[in-house]
């Protein structure tokens, strides 16, 4: 099954804490998961101040500055992984370096027709 692991974190904590992950550690993690054939995709996001949100209301598009969700923790990136079941997905997600300073939401991917 495919699972999307959403990494949420307060942005200051992502880089500012002693236990914040180094880039090299994140790369090493990616490589391990890739080597096991379980990495489908991974992307890191620019900080939320680069975010723009689009809505369509009664036929007009509105574009607002900032992320959609005004939460303390923000989406910092995601990993799309292939795991046998939820337990294995949790095992993989728990090793995501940024999980130490934030949290990871694990959700199964809904398969769509192409």
């Amino acid at each position: 099954m495919k699972y999307l692991c959403l990494v949420y974190c307060e942005e200051e904590k992502l880089h500012g804490l002693p236990e914040s992950p180094e880039d090299a550690e994140c790369e090493a993690y990616c490589e391990t998961v890739e080597a096991s054939g379980q990495l489908v995709a991974a992307e890191a996001l620019e900080p939320v101040n680069t975010a723009v949100t689009v809505r369509l209301h009664q036929g007009t598009t509105s574009v607002t500055d900032g992320p959609f969700a005004e939460t303390k923790e923000q989406l910092a990136g995601f990993y799309l992984i292939d795991a046998r079941d939820l337990n294995q997905a949790i095992q993989l997600a728990a090793r995501i370096p940024a999980a130490r300073v934030g949290c990871v939401e694990v959700r199964p991917v809904r398969e769509l027709q192409p």
């Binding site: 990616c30 992307e43 890191a44 996001l45 723009v52 949100t53 689009v54 809505r55 369509l56």
Partner: peptide
Amino acid sequence: ALALAAHLPACRLGAVEVRPVTTAEETP
């Protein structure tokens, strides 16, 4: 990117957030 995103039907039912993907090698 915003113009493309505006075609997504989800804009009507919720919202679409658009963010550049990090180009540097820094995956969280």
